[in-house]
Lab assay of single mutants.
Amino acid sequence: YKELDVHLRRMESGFGFRILGGDEPGQPILIGAVIAMGSADRDGRLHPGDELVYVDGIPVAGKTHRYVIDLMHHAARNGQVNLTVRRK
């Protein structure tokens, strides 16, 4: 696995990616679609299928989808987010 730290600034449309997973206990949280011309797309480092490991330094492995969405909403209010993702 390769770990990447990604800092994104929120645009009008948000951070520019969707979150998948976390529906079953222990299921990984994954990056879903990366939205064209969004913040994540312009940054270029997030890829669909990347596993989300940390959101603003908070571990999200094994957490629920709702928990991660709530963290992302909090980050959106701050206008930026630091993510750590893991890729095979």
Rank of each mutant, 00 (worst) to 15 (best):
L20F: 10
V68Y: 03
I69H: 12
N82F: 10
K63V: 07
F17C: 04
Y1N: 06
I58K: 14
L71C: 07
R77L: 12
Y54R: 14
M72C: 06
L20Y: 12
G44A: 05
V34G: 04
R77V: 12
V55P: 00
P59E: 12
L46W: 01
L30K: 14
A40I: 04
T64C: 10
L83F: 03
G16F: 02
P59W: 09
L8S: 02
A75L: 03
G22E: 07
D41K: 05
V34A: 03
L46H: 00
G49V: 00
R42Q: 12
L30T: 15
D5S: 15
H73Q: 13
G22I: 05
R66Q: 13
R10T: 15
R86L: 06
V81H: 00
Y67K: 12
P59A: 14
G21Y: 07
G57F: 05
M37P: 08
E12R: 09
M72S: 00
D41V: 04
G38P: 05
V34S: 04
E24A: 12
I69F: 07
D70S: 12
R9M: 12
E3H: 10
L20W: 09
N78E: 12
L4S: 04
M37I: 04
V81I: 13
I35N: 13
F15H: 00
D41G: 09
L20E: 15
P48A: 12
S39A: 15
I19C: 06
D50A: 01
G49P: 01
G79S: 06
G22V: 07
E12G: 15
D56G: 03
L46K: 03
D41L: 03
P59F: 12
V81Y: 02
H74V: 15
T64A: 08
L4C: 04
L52T: 00
R10I: 05
G26R: 06
A76H: 14
P28Y: 02
N78H: 11
G14Q: 03
F17W: 02
Q80P: 03
D50T: 01
K63S: 09
V85E: 02
V6K: 02
S39N: 05
G79H: 07
P28N: 05
G22T: 09
G79C: 06
L52A: 01
N82S: 12
R86D: 15
K63T: 12
A61V: 14
G49Q: 06
A75V: 05
S13E: 14
R77D: 14
P28C: 04
P28T: 06
E3P: 00
H47Y: 09
A33C: 09
G32F: 01
L30M: 12
G49L: 05
G44Q: 06
R18D: 15
T84N: 06
H74L: 13
I31S: 00
P59R: 14
V81N: 01
P48Y: 08
Q80W: 12
N82T: 11
R42S: 08
R9F: 10
V60R: 00
V34K: 05
G32P: 03
P25G: 07
L4N: 04
G21T: 08
I31H: 01
G22M: 04
D56W: 00
N78W: 06
H74E: 15
T64V: 08
I35W: 07
L4V: 09
V60K: 00
D41H: 11
A76L: 13
L71T: 04
G57L: 02
I69N: 15
D41C: 08
R45P: 04
T84V: 12
E24W: 09
N78F: 08
I35T: 15
I31V: 12
I35D: 15
M72T: 03
I69K: 15
E51I: 07
M72D: 02
I31N: 00
G62I: 02
V81L: 08
I69Q: 14
D70W: 07
I19E: 02
E51F: 02
D50G: 02
G44V: 03
R10V: 10
R86H: 15
I31F: 00
H74S: 13
H65M: 10
D56E: 07
I69V: 13
R45W: 04
A76Y: 14
D5I: 11
Q27C: 09
G38A: 04
V81S: 00
G49E: 06
E3S: 09
H7D: 11
F15W: 08
V34N: 05
I58Y: 11
T64F: 04
D43G: 05
L83T: 02
V6T: 00
R9N: 12
K2H: 06
V53S: 07
L52Y: 01
A61M: 13
D23M: 11
I35H: 14
R10E: 10
G62V: 00
G16E: 02
T84A: 05
T84P: 02
L52K: 02
G38V: 00
A75I: 04
G21F: 10
G14T: 04
L71G: 01
V81R: 00
H7I: 08
R10N: 10
D23T: 11
P48V: 14
D5T: 14
E3F: 15
I58V: 13
E51Q: 10
V34L: 14
A40L: 03
V81F: 02
P25S: 08
V68T: 07
N82D: 14
R45Q: 09
P48G: 06
L20G: 09
R10P: 13
R10Q: 11
D50Y: 01
V68F: 05
V60F: 00
D50P: 00
R10C: 13
G62H: 07
L71V: 07
L4D: 03
V34P: 08
R77F: 11
M37A: 07
Y1T: 07
E12D: 14
I35A: 14
E51C: 04
R10H: 15
K88T: 15
K2A: 03
H7Q: 13
D56N: 07
G26E: 08
G62N: 10
P59D: 12
D50F: 02
R66L: 10
L83G: 01
D43A: 04
P28V: 05
G49R: 04
I29C: 09
L20D: 15
G44K: 07
G62C: 07
L20M: 13
L30Q: 12
H47E: 11
G79A: 07
L30H: 13
V60I: 12
T64R: 09
I29F: 13
Y54Q: 14
A75S: 07
L20V: 15
K2I: 13
M72H: 01
Q80H: 14
G14P: 00
M11P: 04
R18F: 05
H74P: 00
S13Y: 08
Q80R: 10
R66C: 10
F15Q: 03
S13C: 09
L46Q: 00
R66N: 12
D41S: 09
D5G: 08
G62Y: 06
V68R: 00
I69C: 13
Y1A: 05
E24P: 11
V68W: 03
L46G: 00
H73K: 14
G32K: 09
R10G: 10
E51M: 07
G26K: 06
Q80N: 12
S39C: 08
V81E: 03
G21A: 09
Q27L: 08
D41W: 11
L4I: 15
D23W: 11
Q27R: 10
P48I: 12
I58G: 02
L71I: 10
D5R: 11
L52G: 02
V60D: 02
V68A: 09
I19V: 09
G44M: 05
A76P: 03
A76F: 10
S39P: 11
D23R: 13
I58N: 12
H47I: 13
R66T: 12
I19A: 02
